[in-house]
Amino acid sequence: MAATVRKPGLSPIMSARLKSFALVLPLALVLLVFVVVPLAVVLAVSVFRYDNFEVIPAFTFENYQSVLSSHLTLSLYLTMLKLAAMTWICTLLIGYSVAAFLVFHVRSRLVAIGLFLLCTVPFWTSNVIRMISWLPLLGKQGVINQALMASGLIQEPLQFLLFSDFSVVVSYVHLFTIFMIVPIFNAMSRIDRSLFEAAHDAGAARWQTVLWVVLPLTKSGIVLGSIFVVTLVMGDFYVVKVMSGGTDASVVSAMYDDISTLLFPHAAASAAVLMIILTAMVAAILRLVDVRKELVSGR
């Protein structure tokens, strides 16, 4: 009884805020300790000298100089941008088609959910395993080459299938298309079906409805999916490392090699550059849509 009596001096808004703060505290702490501080440490190490696991608080720009002046850096970024662009196009086309099929063409909601889960299940299994599962398919003696040779379409095994940009992009598409499907699926699910009838009544052809009704209403989904796919590719290191057969490196796999040889400051500087570039890319994409409104009050 006593606990609910009006407490003088604490307005309802204030007590609601205190409650919000208390609820959000664990989340904020985890993100502070395991995201904010580590990234700050990376920045710190990138501008300090570093010897034998000791950070020597002497400011230096050497690490950045070495990263930025290297031709290797430029070519790494160009490679990654190229891979990201190819992956983005493939995941967008596949993701949009799959989402459109599930939302607009499967008539039973239960079946649609079932098929959607079918697309999602592999996401809950190991990425590394899913990646290496392409090895027996794409190899010189792999299933695809064997099948093509048996059918007489080719005489020699196709070399470009494995350990190439092709196999890298195939793996990316395999791993990351789900990140495109889910937000687009969500955006499409929110479209009121009567809009199509209205567009049809207004005399719009099918392509006009898609271009002027569906596309604008699914923009937010496309933007979100694009952010996920692009950042995942840019931050990858193991797919490139394995699926290119060790010939290519990614920005992050170069960091991995640095770390293996204990070149922490160099890796940190490279990480800082990557974070800045990614942040700029995401910020540019975010200008297109209010992601918070989309996600928090998703209706």
Binding site: V35, P38, L39, V41, V252, M255, Y256, A271, L274
Partner: peptide
């Protein structure tokens, strides 16, 4: 940011921290 940050970069950061 936590979602889209490159995993390995965070890994290095936490390790260094």
């Amino acid at each position: 940011a936590s979602l889209v940050a490159p995993g390995y970069v965070l890994s290095i950061g936490i390790g260094l921290m």
